[in-house]
């Protein structure tokens, strides 16, 4: 199945897309022959335990999961499987979170923290190999739909050097960007806990939208 693991709705201050508009655009992509099963909302520096998209998801046959994108000492991190225990332990609004502590806390709370757009200038993990113990990093966001020239190459270099597994996400801030990069999972994912399980177990790879045409599937 194909999931976009990195999207922002208007709940993030720099996005202009509503969740309802994303769902409608998923329908457009499907009618054009692309495969997309759902997406994860990864709002900047926040997590809303109360917001519930289950009706919207069910009515449109789109999986809508929730995560977050946090600012750390080692660049931005995507957090999946957020629990109340994790938000009690970690101040999501803090812009200088210790990345190593975040990864440990996430793991202990049943979540996973994954470096976002690791090749990004300024806020990608690539620039922060400063001696900190980053051995907990196993997965990074390999394909990001908002990458600028040079950033994909840096991400690939990191992945090559450290043997990381790679996800894909659009980093959509506008309606039409959703699904431009996604993650293909060999097994079904139906909720956040299963997403964490799959990311820890392997059996996924980053894809671009054009790779999802039925009958065509390129590896990245």
């Amino acid at each position: 199945m194909y999931l976009d693991l990195h999207t922002h709705s208007v709940s993030s201050d720099d996005s202009r897309a509503t969740v309802e508009q994303y769902v409608k655009w998923v329908g457009v992509l499907r009618r054009r022959g692309w495969q997309i099963d759902g997406f994860v909302l990864t709002e900047h520096r926040k997590f809303d335990h109360d917001v519930d998209y289950s009706t919207l998801a069910r009515d449109n046959d789109v999986l809508i999961l929730k995560g977050s994108e946090l600012d750390t000492s080692h660049g931005h991190f995507l957090v999946y499987g957020v629990t109340e225990e994790l938000t009690d332990r970690v101040d999501f609004s803090h812009v200088g979170l210790d990345a190593v502590c975040l990864m440990r806390a996430a793991d202990e709370c049943g979540a996973i923290a994954v470096p976002a757009h690791p090749g990004r200038f300024g806020v990608g993990l690539y620039e922060y190999y400063d001696g900190a113990d980053l051995s907990a990093v196993r997965v990074v966001e390999r394909l990001n739909g908002s990458n600028r020239p040079g950033e994909q190459e840096r991400a690939e270099e990191l992945i090559q050097r450290h043997g990381y597994a790679g996800t894909g996400g659009s980093d959509a801030h506008l309606v039409s960007a959703i699904g431009t990069c996604m993650t293909r999972f060999d097994q079904e994912v139906s909720n956040e806990a299963e997403l964490v399980e799959r990311l820890k177990a392997g059996g996924f790879r980053a894809v671009r939208l054009e790779d999802t045409a039925r009958g065509g599937d390129c590896d990245h």
Binding site: R16, P149, L174, S176
Partner: peptide, 16 residues
């Protein structure tokens, strides 16, 4: 959705 991008394809301004 609207975009303004530079010659390298980087979107400098996005909006709706």
């Amino acid at each position: 959705d609207v975009f303004l991008q530079d010659p390298q394809g980087t979107r400098l301004i996005i909006g709706k």
